[in-house]
Simulated scan of single mutants.
Amino acid sequence: MMYKKQIVQVCLVILLFGHFVESGNVGKLKVLTFNAGLLDASLAEDNPNITNNREERRDALIDYLKKSDAELVCLQEVPFGQDVEKIVKEVSKKFPYSFSQLHQSNGALPPQSTTKWDPSCNPGILNAVFTCALNNGCATGSETVRPGAEIFQCIVSNCLAEISALVATSGEPCLSCITTNSPQNYFTRCAGAPSTDLWNMNKMGLLLLSKKALSETHDVEFFPNYTNIFPQGYLRAKVNGNNLTVACVHAIQYLPYTLEFPPLGTDYPSYAAQNAHELQELVNSFKDVKPSALLGDFNVGPAALSVNELGQDNYEILTSHFTTKLVKDSTFSTSNPYNGGEFAQNVIIDHVFVNGDVDVLNAKVVLKRNKVSQGLPVSDHYGVKAMLKIKKCNGK
């Protein structure tokens, strides 16, 4: 067992030679979380005048990251390997370290845009699902937005044999490709002969960027033993050996229904119930990990001035163990042109939580005024940037 004096000496060494002094901000780390919404479909499901502008929004995000003073970035909804590659390469001078489900164990990202990828979906079975959907009026095939709940429910009701065969033969990569593309892209992005045009799927859509080296990296799916339509989870890493564990998180939407197949859909009859399980899993995994920081899109948040609550009971699963600094504005807003429909509201669902001797300072909404053509924002979410202050070194 180390004596207290030795522990203090070790802490001083970490502070002197670790990340924090090196960055010029002793004991501080600037973090950013942003749901980029880089789907290959229009984000505006209720506005036909807004077209698919994924590449333009991606490039605007890259420009923002190059100028940002953030030192650690958690991105959600970057589902395509080609986009992961472009972001990682373009910001590598600012963020030389990165991690996703596509990264190798040595931290390298294999080539994405120059590799001929096998199709995510079995072409013949996907065509059978598509034909059945058209014949039953579930879709027209000309949709420019990704399929919503009504389309999925119609397909499951009328084409269960076909969709079950697709799940059995192609699994989650195919489902991920379908849910992140518009139907008109299915046979160029998800099925066909091996090609560089086919998407290599970054299933959870998570990407971690860091100014300092990452170690002990892991990707964790919340339901690894189930076939998920929307696989969610987190990336876990330590930053520059300074004992700070970080998790880049995306939890399932808080909705009163589920589209998942049995047994997942049976065990959790709504996405709200599934969300509660996922957040409890985060608590179980990180409640004893100190110091730690969890940042991302948790899809729940409390009521605040001019902001509605969304799944506050689920949100309190997190706040019963972790602390946070709530931003003043909504991160998912009805004033955002991409957002509309039955479940659109002003909510704060993107957060930075900490555990142990860490404080969240100066949390604020960002990427709200950054625009692309037509005056549109970079995503249907806004980002959250905060300063983390580690109050003392942990001697354990």
Rank of each mutant, 00 (worst) to 15 (best):
Gly148Tyr: 03
Gly148Cys: 05
Gly107Lys: 03
Ser98Asp: 02
Ala139Val: 15
Ser98Leu: 02
Ser142Ala: 15
Asn106Phe: 03
Phe152Thr: 04
Thr115Ile: 11
Leu134His: 06
Pro111Gln: 02
Arg146Leu: 13
Ile155Leu: 10
Ser105Cys: 04
Cys138Met: 02
Asp118Met: 12
Leu134Pro: 05
Glu143Gln: 07
Ala128Met: 11
Pro147His: 04
Leu126Lys: 01
Glu150Trp: 05
Asp118Thr: 12
Asn127Cys: 00
Cys138Arg: 03
Gln104Thr: 08
Gly107Ser: 01
Phe99Asn: 04
Thr144Met: 13
Pro123Ile: 11
Asn127Gly: 06
Val129Trp: 03
Asn158Tyr: 04
Ala128Asn: 13
Thr140Met: 12
Ala128Glu: 15
Gly124Pro: 01
Ala149Thr: 13
Thr140Gly: 15
Leu102Arg: 06
Asn135Gly: 00
Asn122Lys: 09
Glu143His: 07
Ser105Pro: 02
Asn136Leu: 09
Ala139Met: 15
Arg146Val: 01
Pro123Gly: 08
Leu134Cys: 07
Leu134Met: 13
Cys132Ala: 08
Ile125Trp: 00
Asn135Met: 09
Gln104Asn: 13
Phe152Met: 11
Gly137His: 03
Gly107Trp: 04
Gly107Phe: 00
Lys116His: 06
Val156Trp: 09
Pro123Tyr: 10
Ala108Phe: 06
Ala108Met: 09
Cys121Ser: 10
Ile151Ser: 11
Asp118Trp: 10
Ser100Trp: 08
Leu126Met: 10
Leu102Thr: 04
Ser113Leu: 04
Thr131Gly: 10
Leu102Gly: 01
Gln112Pro: 00
Thr140His: 09
Arg146His: 11
Asn106Trp: 01
Ile155Arg: 03
Ser105Gly: 05
Leu134Gln: 14
Ser157Cys: 05
Gln153Glu: 14
Arg146Gln: 07
Phe130Ala: 08
Gly141Glu: 09
Glu150Ser: 13
Ser120Asp: 11
Ala149Gly: 05
Gly137Met: 06
Thr144Val: 15
Gly141Gln: 10
Ile155Met: 11
Thr114Lys: 12
Tyr97Cys: 00
